[in-house]
Computed example of a mutant assay.
Amino acid sequence: MKQLQEVSTQTTSTKSPQIRMLVDMMERLWQNKLSVAGGIFMLILIIMAIFAGLLAPSDPAAQNYSAVLQGPSAAHWFGTDNLGRDILSRVIYGAQVSLKAGLISVGIALIIGLPIGLFSGYYRGLWDEFFIMRFTDAMLAFPPLVLALTLAAVLGAGLENAMIAIGLVFTPNYIRLMRGEVLARRESEYVEAAKSSGIKDWRIMLFHILPNSMGPILVMATLNIAGAIIAEASLSFLGLGTQPPTPSWGAMLAEGQGYLTEAPWLVFFPGLFIFLAVMSINLFGDGLRDMLDPKSK
């Protein structure tokens, strides 16, 4: 038994620093039970979105006028809407729209914001101080939802345009964050060593500065997915996002607002899933932030 313990100790001690760091990070995440719970519900949402065709009990667009505004029952767990459509099926398919909007919107913001912030922070100068950052400050001065509504109205109604509008609204956040990370690292020893070795600027930015800046960016991206879900639901509620008959949690809230007293389940279940999705992503984002923080013990 003592020999096995010695072997185990030797195996642990011979692990590379990267493996030990990864193990420590996972332990910090696992200790945060709320973040684990948030991650589990995020996984449930992803499964719902991927396997919606298998999980949904019926076609989300199928109308049944003999089952209009039926309450939750064994036949329809979440009830039916004013057209006899199954609410559970529409909620499941709505997860596809919400996750798609969240991921693509944040992806657009990352693709646009990171390169601008990277070059702006590395080269500085007049272009950085008086053009990029002043334009970023101007965009950040607007309330995000108001700016998203304006852009969506200009681009036109539809999920694709809504995702573009939300992505553009989030872009200044990544420009500012990436620029700040570059400014904090451009004078560091490993960057100076890379410069003295004759490595080109683009390689320094891409392979030295960017990888060491991904921690805060990943945390912000995770939290912004929750914000994008809320923004898409808001735009769909106002008729600028997902268009009928495609099921969307925000559009379902808009359709059910006239039946609050008669059939409250029309708004309760999509509203509940919006709340749970946003809360779970935020909880997981908090845990991810703690996991990536080397000072967190």
Score class of each variant (00 low, 15 high):
Asn161Trp: 06
Trp202Arg: 14
Asn64Ala: 09
Phe269Trp: 15
Asn212Ile: 14
Leu140His: 03
Asn173Lys: 15
Met133Ala: 08
Gly113Leu: 03
Phe273Tyr: 11
Ala75Asn: 08
Val154Leu: 10
Ala101Pro: 05
Val7Ala: 13
Met220Val: 08
Gly117Asn: 09
Phe51His: 03
Leu126Ser: 13
Thr246Ile: 13
Ser280Ala: 15
Val278Gln: 02
Ser120Phe: 05
Asp81Gln: 07
Arg179Ile: 12
Ile50Asp: 00
Leu253Thr: 14
Val23Pro: 02
Gln243Arg: 11
Val182Arg: 01
Lys195Thr: 02
Ser8Thr: 14
Ala74Glu: 08
Tyr174Trp: 09
Gly258Arg: 10
Val36His: 00
Ile230Val: 14
Ala62Tyr: 11
Ser89Cys: 09
Gly117Ala: 04
Thr261Gly: 00
Gly125Cys: 10
Val278Asp: 01
Ser248Phe: 06
Leu292Thr: 08
Ile281Pro: 01
Leu292Gln: 06
Lys200Cys: 05
Trp265Glu: 12
Gly250Ala: 05
Asp293Arg: 07
Thr246His: 02
Ile204Cys: 11
Ala226Trp: 03
Ser105Asn: 06
Val23Thr: 11
Ala56Val: 15
Gly79Phe: 09
Thr246Cys: 04
Ile116Gln: 02
Gly239Trp: 06
Leu83Gln: 14
Val106Trp: 00
Ser16Asp: 05
Ala101Leu: 06
Leu183Cys: 05
